[in-house]
Simulated assay, not measured.
Amino acid sequence: ERWREAGGRPPEGADEETALTAMLAAAYPADTATPPDATALAVLEETAEFLGAGFADLINLFQPERILVGGWAGLQLGARFLETVTGYAREYALRYPASRTGIGLGTLGPEAVTVGAALLPLVDFFAQGGRRPETEPTPPSPAWQTALRDRVSS
């Protein structure tokens, strides 16, 4: 959308992924005789700076050891722009936390969040030694407690 607002020409009716692919192709044409689209290059540079500034905020606030870029957009942009984004993040972040934070591309692919969520039950299971937690059997409540609970909730 930003490319269109700046005067670029994404394909009509294209979804976000297709439009991003078209913008990258316009900025870095495969045919060396075709000049790069200056608008696409400017939007991509601006995006890299915005991402770097956002990462700097994360670094300053949370001081993470690592930031991984993923998802379909991150993986498309990451290979070409990760170094630029990292440069902006280091420029805008506080020096000490920035020096202790690594920024890289995720390796789980565009479905990283889904894969991570699917692993959570397994992590919990293995943290318990591969056994279900043992639960103490609870004796039934006396009848007077049940009657009292029913009256209070009514």
Rank of each mutant, 00 (worst) to 15 (best):
P10H: 04
P142Q: 12
W144R: 15
E5Q: 14
A112F: 04
E5C: 02
P10S: 08
P11M: 06
P140C: 01
R4L: 04
G130H: 14
A127T: 12
L94I: 13
T107E: 14
L24V: 02
V85W: 05
T135P: 00
P36S: 03
E45A: 15
A40Y: 07
D37C: 09
G74W: 06
E45H: 12
R131M: 08
T39S: 03
P29G: 01
P64K: 03
E134Q: 10
F50L: 14
A73K: 05
L77C: 02
E111K: 13
A117M: 14
E136G: 01
E111T: 13
L108H: 13
D124Y: 08
W72T: 09
R4K: 14
P142C: 11
I67R: 03
G106E: 04
Y28P: 00
G106I: 14
G52R: 03
T39F: 00
R2F: 08
E46A: 14
V43R: 05
T18N: 04
L20K: 01
W3M: 01
G102P: 04
E5W: 03
F125A: 02
G129R: 09
P11W: 09
L77A: 10
E136Q: 14
P110N: 01
T86F: 01
G116E: 12
A93N: 07
P139Y: 01
L75W: 10
A14K: 11
T34I: 15
R131T: 14
G54V: 00
V113D: 12
T47A: 12
F62I: 14
F125W: 15
A38T: 13
I103P: 03
A98H: 01
P10R: 01
A27I: 00
G70N: 06
R131W: 02
W3V: 00
A30V: 11
A147H: 13
F55M: 15
P137H: 00
G106L: 11
V123C: 07
V115I: 15
G7L: 09
Q145M: 13
F125D: 10
D37M: 05
S99G: 10
A42P: 04
I59W: 02
L44I: 10
P11Y: 00
Q145S: 12
L105V: 12
W3Q: 05
Q128K: 11
L94M: 15
A40N: 07
A42Y: 06
